Amino acid sequence: MPVAIASVLLSGGSALADNEIGGGAQAPTPSTGAAVDGSTVSVTAGGVVFDRSKNGRGNSVGALTSSTSWTPPPCWYAPKYTPEQLKKYLEPIWEAESTGYQWDAEQRDRFVNGHPYKDFNKDKAGEGYFWDAYVNEDFPPGWDSCKEPIFWVDKGDPPPATIPNAVTPEILAELAYAQIRVPGTRVSLAPAQATKVNLPTWAWLDNAEFKPVSVTASVPVIGIQATATAEPVALKLEPGTADAVTYPASGVCEIRNGRIGEPYAKGKADQTPPCGVKYLRASEAGGSFPLRATVTWKIHWTGTGGAGGNLPDGTFGATQNVVVQEVQAVNR
């Protein structure tokens, strides 16, 4: 039987529905047990429990796009079966004889005849778990990276060093990163309804919405966890036309004193906004310019045993229409 097919049969897709270890689910996806705003307290997927209670909320939340080519792990290994659960999963496959005599015989030899596991390791029930691969279907092809057959790990022991992608706090942090949802990037503008040609338009973000968000991923049965936290650090403005200038000139407004940009206040008409845009021509009658606002979020993580570090920055943006009018002259 081809190795790839055997791997699929032994890994993930048809996991036990009552599998309390692996959760009976595949990889985490944005819709797995989550509310629209991502505020679900916890949900189990792919053998991992996600706590999203500190995630971004609201109808306009969205996933981050990495500033590099980085993507979450396509697959990982984690506890999936007790001895009884593995027996319940494999024996119907063998009885169906759909995988071929030779392959079935090899698997019976591995898990029943003692090479290396005797009678599904029932004598070690409660002392460990069989680990298997979980595939992140959002980032295929995951099976190409996780082809190891199901293996046993005693409680308290690390998985074999020869197993790639065995779950660690860092892998959990990467999976948590993929679950982070941040608020939509609609900036406040002054003037709010329509701006004028050559008039500096102030731009800023609502401090109440743009604050750190985080997701925690854990595998409780082996006592490891990691929290990935996203903090807004900068706003990039793209006016939607070459006939405009931005403040600052780079169009990137850094976070200062805990906020991005500054709300306009009476008496500041003659001041240059710390964050904003000035249009040099009017938009067409009945039209507007598509102002693109993108927030950069810095990602760091902490995990079991003092582990921690940084992950690539993420971005999330949105476009809003800005009407620009000519200044009306008054004839006397």
Rank of each mutant, 00 (worst) to 15 (best):
S14K: 14
E20H: 13
S31I: 11
S31P: 01
D37R: 12
V41A: 07
V41S: 12
A45H: 07
G47N: 08
F50L: 15
R52S: 06
G62A: 14
G62M: 15
G62I: 14
P74I: 09
C75S: 11
C75D: 02
W76V: 10
Y77H: 12
Q85E: 14
E97C: 04
A105C: 02
E106C: 05
E106H: 08
V112N: 04
N113A: 11
G114T: 02
K124I: 10
K124Q: 15
Y129H: 13
N136P: 03
F139Q: 01
D144M: 08
D154G: 08
P160T: 00
P160L: 03
T168G: 05
L175S: 01
A176V: 03
A176S: 09
A178W: 14
R181K: 15
T185D: 02
T185Y: 03
V187S: 04
A190D: 09
A192K: 11
L199M: 12
L199S: 04
P200T: 02
A208N: 12
E209S: 15
S214F: 04
S214W: 00
T216M: 09
A217D: 09
A217M: 13
I224Y: 06
P232L: 05
L235E: 02
E238T: 15
R256F: 05
G258M: 06
G261W: 03
Y264N: 04
Y264V: 02
K266G: 02
A269V: 05
T272R: 14
S283M: 02
R292H: 12
K298P: 00
I299R: 02
T302C: 00
G306N: 11
A307F: 05
L311A: 01
G317A: 07
A318F: 09
Q325P: 00
